[in-house]
Amino acid sequence: MSSRYSFGGDEHVFVEVSEEMSLEAFFKALSMTNAVRDAEISGVTEICPANASFQIKFDPDVIRPDDLLTELRRLEDIADRAEATLDTRIVEIPVYYRDPWTHETLMRFRERHQDPESTDIEFAARINGYSSVDDFIAAHSGAPWFVSMVGFVSGLPFLYQMVDRARQIQVPKYLRPRTDTPRLTVGYGGCFSCIYSVRGAGGYQMFGITPMPIYDPDQETSYLREFMVFFRPGDIVKWRQIDRDEYDGCTADVQAGRYTPRIRDVVFSLEDFNRDIDGTNARLEETLYAD
């Protein structure tokens, strides 16, 4: 896999590892950005990993654009030889699917949708060949997901499911973006799930909502006191379906400052994963729920 390099004006290098999404491309983008960070290249001001690409912002008064390119290509050679393992964490995110708030919102924007007669999740289940929404939810909350990019707006994670391509869920975005999306909506567009960190415009299909804040500029949420953004690229997420009672319980816990996300440290090996996808995922889940 050889990357494509392009300058974004005089202050950015854009590196496309692959045109199409894959765990391999994501892993390579992530390991290259880690290598760039470790290399501490003077003049590099921002290192942004994305799904199958990444971007470096630099100060051309400090490093010549061509010199930076040379350095990045050298790091690509090293990244290609590196073992694809990642010290990371797995996090459980509770999801109240088919909640009343995203339902109210999606009903307001039906005329912007491909299928105004269905809800977003009914539409997604049908076009992905699931016979019921329950089966679809079982698939969405079954195998875990990689946070393959954090961005768009403040702390919003893009997530890519850790299954082979045949089992990937794919849905189109809204025909025209909505002007409103509830905060903490669990959404879906293309092959990516996401959590809307703040209320605002959005084009992803809306499946449900999590009670767990993931961005808090006031840093008052108990687990966001250290830093206002919860997710980092490379985090692994396991969705867990909850009902209204548990949603209300979690929300009350968050407000009372006693909600503690379930998080465990894990080591992920891409090679092991490719050898045995379901086995690897089962072991990740075991670690998450071991105690």
């Binding site: 974004g8 004006g9 202050e11 950015h12 854009f14 496309e16 692959s18 045109e19 199409e20 999404m21 942004c48 994305a50 799904n51 199958a52 690409s53 990444f54 971007q55 912002k57 990019m149 961005g151 768009f152 893009f158 293309g190 990516f192």
Partner: peptide, 10 residues
């Protein structure tokens, strides 16, 4: 495109 980073000024 597969969702990617946007440079300032892009």
């Amino acid at each position: 495109i597969t969702d990617a980073c946007y440079p300032y000024g892009s």
